[in-house]
Design a protein around this nucleic acid. Structure first.
Length: 565
RNA sequence: CGGGGCGUAGCUCAGCUUGGUAGAGCGCUUGCUUCGGGAGCAAGAGGUCGCAGGUUCAAAUCCUGUCGCCCCGACCA
């Protein structure tokens, strides 16, 4: 492609509302342009990268035996009513009406559609397993779109859905996808990590996320320092660590005027945060309130809490007024002793002896408190967020926290949708089999941003070869004075195109500064500079985007191809 | 959804407090010079100041409404 005919819209100015590096660089390099909140145009340069990611995904999905189709982005409400998700989805789903006033949604995902397709087309167990996938635009009305295409409302996603006759086969399909994902993320050039995950409201059993590691990542990952354990903190378990120490202190009420937070109380009473129990109040499964006790330095994990049978799902904190009514006391002084509601405790909180907690009386706390003696022995469970330094749940090493960008997610759904939508196939003996489903997503547009987040420098993007919009840029210098440089650049460019290389020729006739600046900003991995000086010695100048310095190479196509590898 | 902020030239922003002829830098056009890391000089083009009302002799500026966008928060007692 010739830059004189290929519009690139690079700017020096940093866009005002871009927070993170990838968003800034994508705008500055002219890869994307914003149309509205969470809505982006992929400009020609950006689209080339997007298509390359798509191709890698497509190739690996096909290699893994999945079959591509394309489902509509607009879906009728009936399907979602059938699965029961029409009322569950909330405002994230964009609902629209057609001219007949019928309800539709802009598909945030396609479990319902694919299940309906398989229900219509698949009759026999002989036709399974099958794994259908598509690369399709989705819309999720995020409550807060941000970071450019990282968390956009409209985005490009690869989603795949497998159907198996048995749970064992589902595991096999899942494993195939897991391997395909590892290949995809590796080929794209991302530094990534598969981690155990919560399956969220899609439902199902086993689930892993593929995270691209980056400081700007919105997810926290708990990984073992020595072992192989890795999980999203949302899903990371914490274990009971053993019996608690015997009670030694006597129960005592302490005046703590105005000390409402654990930090304040800890400072005021000169006890470590880890010796305090904080009691939070959530909505209970039975519609009432339930107290959840965690150690002062810990936080409730709402996802784990919601799985407790006594806690409402989804997890929701109680309204402050309701809490104050129940306790007859301000929040900030709550504790398990004489609590008017049932209390469950996280393992770590339940293991404390002689602890400090609120007295259920304004401006007062208790110290020397012991479970079983001063209040009921609580039911215990894993209810808290894992923290840095916790022992790894698999017993190997300790936990370190990393940040990641969720680039892919694979689930074993089981029969959630096949059951809800009455999908059956006939088995060997004529019986009806409800297929086991898996679903597997990759955020294609997000991945471009995530890779930039990992791979950039002060001058701009540093694309990995595999997804660079162009692999090499040919830059003639001093074309105003040197017809030779111009001609040599033209020749090399034509030769590269002839050799099947994605090459870009900067034939804009600009001064060198702007040409180099643009080439760096848009992140072309390889650069060939052609000038009179080099040509006099039959040499081109070669520089890799990551290299500090350029080097001289023979002025031949072969020498250039050798550098491209 | 709660709180805060911003809408002025293609882009980044000033002007608004204290109402009185629409501004800068970048970008763009033309010419000359320059030509190895975002050049210099000169001349130009380009804006119903988000939209709708209101106050006023007069509104980018004050008031009301509305739309859009951005940021923070949304379990951390």
């Amino acid at each position: 492609m010739r830059l004189s005919r290929f519009p690139i819209a690079t700017t020096k100015e940093t866009p005002a509302d871009a927070e993170i590096v990838s968003h800034r660089l994508m705008l500055r390099a002219g890869l994307i342009r914003k149309l509205g909140a969470g809505l982006y145009t992929w400009m020609p340069l950006g689209l080339r990268t997007l298509r390359k990611i798509e191709s890698i995904v497509r190739e690996e999905m096909n290699r893994a035996g999945a079959v591509e189709l394309l489902m509509p982005s607009i879906q009728p409400a009936e399907l979602w009513q059938e699965s029961g998700r029409w009322d569950v989805m909330g405002d994230e789903m964009l609902r629209i009406k057609d001219r007949h006033k019928n309800d539709f949604c802009y598909g945030p995902t396609h479990e319902e559609v694919i299940t309906a397709i398989v229900r219509a087309d698949v009759r026999s167990y002989r036709q399974l397993p099958i794994n259908y996938y598509q690369i399709q635009t989705k819309f999720r009305d995020e409550r807060r779109p941000r970071f450019g295409v990282m968390r956009a409302r409209e985005f490009l996603m690869k989603d795949a859905y497998s159907f198996s006759t048995t749970a064992e086969d589902l595991s096999q399909q899942y494993e195939l996808m897991r391997e395909a994902y590892i290949r995809i993320f590796t080929r794209v050039g991302a530094d990534f990590r598969p981690v155990q995950a919560d399956s969220g409201n899609i439902g199902g059993a086993k689930s892993e996320e593929f995270h691209i590691l980056a400081l700007a990542g919105e997810d926290l990952l708990a990984v073992s320092t020595e072992g192989s354990y890795a999980a999203n903190v949302e899903a990371a378990e914490t274990k009971a660590s053993g019996p608690r120490a015997a009670a030694t202190a006597t129960l005592e009420k302490v005046s703590t005027p105005g000390q409402k937070t654990c930090e304040q109380v800890s400072k005021f009473m000169k006890v470590p945060l880890t010796a305090k129990v904080k009691l939070m109040v959530a909505k209970a499964a039975d519609g009432g309130l339930i107290g959840i006790a965690v150690r002062g330095d810990h936080e409730i994990n709402p996802i784990k809490a919601a799985k407790h049978p006594k806690v409402a799902s989804p997890f929701e904190m109680a309204k402050i007024e309701d809490v104050q009514k129940a306790f007859g006391c301000e929040v900030g002084y709550l504790g398990p002793v004489n609590a008017p509601i049932p209390v469950i405790a996280d393992f770590a909180a339940s293991e404390l002896a002689d602890f400090v907690c609120g007295a259920n009386e304004v401006d007062h706390h208790l110290k020397g408190v012991n479970w079983g003696r001063d209040c009921a022995e609580p039911e215990t469970a894993d209810l808290r967020m894992i923290v840095e330094g916790d022992p790894s749940p698999d017993g190997v090493g300790t936990i370190r926290l990393l940040r990641g960008i969720e680039g892919g997610h694979i689930f074993q759904l089981g029969q959630k949708y096949s059951k809800a939508m009455s999908l059956t196939v006939q088995g060997e003996n004529g019986e009806a089999i409800t297929p086991e489903m898996g679903c597997y997503g990759i955020g294609v547009s997000r991945m471009a941003a995530a890779v930039i987040e990992q791979s950039h420098d002060a001058n701009g993007i540093v694309w990995p070869d595999a997804i660079a919009p162009f692999r090499v840029i040919v830059t003639p210098i001093g074309t105003d004075k040197s017809p030779a440089a111009k001609a040599a650049a033209e020749t090399l460019y034509e030769q590269l195109i002839g050799a099947g290389v994605d090459a870009l020729l900067d034939d804009r006739g600009l001064r060198p500064g702007p040409m180099f600046a643009d080439a760096d900003l848009i992140g072309i991995p390889h650069r060939i500079v052609i000038g009179d000086k080099g040509l006099a010695a039959s040499q081109f100048e070669y520089k890799h985007r990551r290299a500090d310095k350029a080097e001289m190479i023979p002025a031949t196509l072969d020498a250039v191809l050798a550098k491209l590898g």
